[in-house]
Design a protein around this nucleic acid. Sequence first.
DNA 1: TTAGGGTTAG
Length: 759
Amino acid sequence: MLIARFILRLLATETTKVTFPSTRTRNVLETAQCDNHLIHYFSTTEHQRRSPFNSIYNLPNNKEVEPLHAQAIKNGSAQHQQVGNHLLNLYVKCSDLGQAQKLFDDITNRDVRSWTILITGFAKLGSTKLGLDLFAQMQYDGVCPNCFTLSSVLKCCSCLNDLRKGKEIHGWVLRKGVGSDVVLENSMIDHYVKFGNFDYARIIFESMSKRDTVSWNIMIGAYLHIGVVDKSIDLFRRLPIKDVASWNTIIVGLMRNGSNVKALELLYQMGKVGPQFNNITFSIALAIFASLSLLELGRQIHGKVLRVGLLCDGFIMNSLVDMYCKCGKMDRALAISKKPPQGYDDMQSSNSVLWSSIVSGYVQNCRFEKAFKLFREMVCEGVEMDEFTLTTLASACANAGILEQGLQIHALIEKLGHKLDVFLGSAIIDMYAKCGSLDEARSIFIQTDSRNTVLWTSIISGCALHGQGRESIHLFELMLKEGIRPNEVSFVGVLSGCSHAGLVEEGHAYFRSMQEDFGIVPGVEHFTCMVDLLSRAGHLNGAEDFIYRNGISHISSVWKALLSASRLHKNIEMGKRVSDRLLELEPLSAGPYVLLSNIYATSHRWEEVAEARSMMEQRGVKKNPGQSWIQLKNQLHTFFRGDRSHPQATEIYSYLERLITRLKEIGYSIDTDLVTHDVEEEQKELILGFHSEKLAVTYALMSTPCGSLIRVMKNLRVCTDCHAFVKYTSKVMGREIIVRDPYRFHHFKHGKCSCGDYW
DNA sequence: TTAGGGTTAG
């Protein structure tokens, strides 16, 4: 109901109008009577330039300004202050700083406004160093700056991270008694906010004799920036006149603080009682709908955007594409992205955002091959590869487990000279960890200089993934020592580390500390880790008790963990009870049936095995087939259980048979308990012999040089027989073998596995 | 003063 009313209101709204040039500017020109062409320019083009949404479209083009300039030179008025300043303004507005500088040098009687226009131009267009140089020259020339000059100079200081210079300006203002000017005071507040000097900002805000909406908006934004959501909402409610920027600021700030639903509520309120939406509001609305996967509302905005002719706005278009990608509608996203935006000021960057959204969309939808194909196209078309795109690509390599491609992405990052910020750093650490190179992940971690919670969590989880529970704990403690506050994911990392290494006591302690010291309410993942920890360590009854005590018996993942451990510890009674519970919760998932039949098979209760299998068939539940893959020389080789489709299948099977004979000589015996069908011993041996990881390891042994590392990826957990098989193989063949299953890594070396047979 | 794409999880 709320949403429906919201949409109705939204569709009825009109949008803010912005015109250029302002009436004031036009009057200046008219009174100056400087040049017929200039007056003609403004009087005839204003209505043509009018666009309801964005001043970008109202900006002049330098091809239009140049004839005006030429005419003014002809009339001898260009070097005069009034006309000169106005032309200067036009050049700045069309971003032609070169011409602006030339003209500035030509103006004979420059006043404070001439200096200010150019300094403001430098500040707005990012040439902040030049802005400060010009300010120094202005002071040298003895020209006294006004409030507008100082405001732009402060902006330059903020961009250049020059807090000292900003403070100098502040001191200068206090000494000279420039007087209270709201624009200047706003800039000072903004400057201090950007440097995290929140107290200074608040002192200035509270001492202001007159505040405008901008002053309030900056403070609201500042509170949101430091995560003080309640205070920002309080300030927003007290704000007497809320303009469109006030609403946009609070809504986008809530979204960035993770309060998406609250942001949605305020957006609804804005539609009901607030000002008309502008293009920024639409962009924010699309981002909210994207993050909440509200496709229908996103579509409504799309319709509105089309009706008001906003689709050509680069920002809006990118937001729309991203919304469709995040809602899984890649075709819609691609269709929109085909139409290039018009009148956009930074095509290169906009294009990069667009490609990045689509690559990210493919990664989120697990279409890694498509993502890499797009990446290759981006390289061919010379699209700028920024940190955003590269982070997404690193994440794709991590999820697909393709180390070779990951190495290429890392090399590209270094070639382009990108610094590993927290995002890129975390993604690269995660990529190396998930591709099996924990040492490399550690070395990258050591090299990073700015580390936040996510970056620390990436390496902690990486260690857990490789079964290095002690190392996970060590890093977690180091993180605490450095004053970095763990979040809920950090605890999943350290708990799963404890679980993989059998560290029961430590796991319990962290689970308590998470709630008591950090106030984090345990979620499904934490509970699952705890049940896993307890049950794998053999405390099956304790784990079941934990489930009921914590009121989590409706969560299927905790029962799955317990069921898996019941099989590991061959506890049939528990296995039966747990699988019954699990089948009630998830009647259509294959896992419980397979685990249950495995439990019965372990005790040779073939009737029950058959019963479980037939129940599965009757309900139309299909088991996900076991699959392993390896990458050799840029080519993926995939194997299924009993697969004979590989061109070298005959050689692989004969090699495998010979290998098994050799392994048996040193003590390997096939664990026939694992076979889930009631078949003859010899037949069971054959079925086990065909498990996909055995085929993949065998093919790797045949195709790679002696002594080289073998990496195998697997979609299901490794069975105990294959685990033993790979252990013996690593000993007999003198090879290091890494197997990645969906939950962790196994490093096999000299006949031992890094998991210590505990997985 | 406000807008778009990025990282960690049984």
